[in-house]
């Protein structure tokens, strides 16, 4: 249940950001989650509901997830291609000299506060 651990980190950072901005209650948290971040969005929102409702500041707070596509760059032919479909091997030239450009994000994009 690796998503629960991740939820605890999100809660810690959201509470800190809310405190720094003088916010008493957060109504929504928007996350950027990379396609190959190993996080299952459904599990994350389930864990979030359970854990967030235990915090006064986050009771009823919604977790919104925006998916960041995974893109791999090929050093051999300088092209970018979708990671999930093609993996480590470049579909254009067959090279494995490739690296992940984006898709591992586990980032708090923003928090929303009802005024």
């Amino acid at each position: 249940m690796h998503e629960l651990g991740i939820v605890f980190y999100i809660i810690r950072d959201v509470k800190q950001a809310a405190k720094e901005n003088g916010v008493e209650h957060v109504s929504a948290v928007v996350m950027n989650i990379g396609e190959v971040s190993t996080i299952v969005p459904e599990y994350l929102t389930d864990c979030w509901r359970w854990a967030a409702d235990k915090e006064d500041m986050l009771r009823g707070c919604e977790l919104k997830i925006e998916t960041v596509p995974a893109v791999t760059h090929c050093d051999n032919c300088s092209s970018d291609y979708p990671t999930v479909k093609h993996g480590k091997t470049c579909p254009h030239c067959g090279s494995t000299r490739t690296w992940l450009l984006s898709g591992r994000e586990v980032e708090i994009k923003q928090i929303e506060v009802k005024t």
Partner: peptide
């Protein structure tokens, strides 16, 4: 510096964080 105040709409205030949890 980590939090930039962005928009005010529909009575919801959005605070941009843009911070990796790692």
């Amino acid at each position: 510096k980590n939090t930039i105040f962005v928009t005010l709409m529909d009575e919801v205030k959005v605070i941009e964080i843009k911070k990796s949890i790692f």
